[in-house]
Simulated assay, not measured.
Amino acid sequence: MDDSTLRDRLEQLGLSEKEVDTYLSILSSGEATASEIADDTGVSKRYVYSISESLEDRGFVEVNDHVVPTTIRARPPEEVIDALTDRLEEMSGALDSRYSASAREPQQFDVIKSRVTVIKRLTEYIRNAEREIMLSVPQQYLPEISEELGAAVDRGVLVMLVVSSADNLRSDDASGLASVVRSWDQPMPIMLTVDAQFGLVSPAEMVTRTNSDQRAIAFVQQQLVPVLSGSFLGNYWLMATEVAVTDPAPLPATYHDFRHAVLQATLHLRADHDIHVSADVRAVQADDDTTTIEGTVVETKQGLVEPETNSYPIEHTLVVDIGDRTVSLGGSGSFLEDYETDAVTLSLAE
């Protein structure tokens, strides 16, 4: 390490420029008087005493004021480094605690400049997903997050995955990574939404190259994330080709993500299963109290699996026969259907 870098590192430890000059002078001589150090550094002897006391408090030197004249001796560097390491380790628990607390309260918008941070944020969001993941990533990067995606599927998260810049992606390669996997041979941005709350958009180069000067944006805003989801479904999902689809899940099951309920109802209907639905619903665009609807799913309108049966990319609907009429159910915030709901229970009709 050259002198310039050494000085920078010492200043990063909190030493001022004059403290660095004084400390390096003491190191070079091993032990010296205040007068000798003052002559070497060009500062007053009084200032040398003041700096030496500060360096002693930090563990860099020892001041021997029991002799005349007073001498200042450098502590062996390995002892200094050991002392600094011990102090950092003492801080570790407190720093981790504060970092964890701040991580649970992410900023609404965060401009990300480094590849490492993009990868960390992608992994963190996927690991913490509880209901739904929409994700597009280049095939080159897929192996780095395959374990996290598989774990999300195993814990019941709806995972919709587009693999971009794909070269002959086979169903066996994609099996278990997502509920539905599509591939596209064209490049596209990395896009991620999680639980309709967290979002991230990044140029693909930020994870496929180590020296990219591009920037990514992560955000936490329930009003904005659905806009990104709509773009994902309306622009990119439709352009990609279906590669793999999960098997129908065991029922009964309750789904708090409505698209997941629509996917499972679709898969079971295509397997010739009769599906019963129960849900607490509210009339769309009305302030009425909730009511319980029970009936048989007779149709789904969806764009999650091929062939699509919806009229609009955001349309995901359960059409339910409730005995005296047929009604349509949508998720929270729906406006195309008769009713909206926050949770749906599907079961096999007896």
Rank of each mutant, 00 (worst) to 15 (best):
R87H: 09
T70L: 03
D65R: 10
E62Q: 07
E79D: 15
R73K: 15
V80W: 03
A101V: 02
H66E: 15
V67K: 09
L88A: 09
V68C: 01
L84H: 05
E89I: 15
R87L: 10
S102E: 12
D96A: 15
D96H: 13
A94P: 07
P76S: 11
Y99E: 09
R98D: 03
V68Y: 15
V80N: 01
V63A: 01
A94S: 13
E90Q: 13
D65I: 05
V80R: 01
T70Q: 00
L84F: 01
E105S: 14
V63Q: 04
D65F: 06
R104C: 03
P77M: 05
P76W: 05
R75Y: 02
E62I: 02
T70W: 02
L95W: 11
E79P: 05
T71L: 04
N64F: 12
V80E: 07
I81E: 09
P77E: 02
E105T: 12
M91N: 14
M91W: 07
A74W: 10
V80K: 03
L88P: 00
D65N: 14
T70A: 06
V80P: 02
G93F: 11
E79V: 06
R104K: 14
E90R: 14
R104W: 04
N64V: 15
P106A: 07
V68I: 12
R75F: 00
A94N: 10
S100E: 14
R75D: 04
E105F: 10
A94G: 11
L88F: 10
S100L: 12
S97R: 14
V68L: 13
R75I: 00
L88V: 09
N64R: 14
E78Q: 09
R73E: 12
V63G: 01
E62T: 03
P77H: 02
D65W: 00
E105W: 06
S100T: 11
S97G: 13
L95I: 14
S102K: 11
L95G: 01
R87G: 04
I72D: 00
A103T: 11
D65M: 02
I81A: 08
E90W: 03
A94K: 04
P77R: 01
L84M: 03
G93V: 09
V80S: 00
L88D: 02
R75T: 04
I72Y: 06
E105Y: 11
R104M: 13
I81H: 00
S100R: 15
S92A: 14
A101R: 12
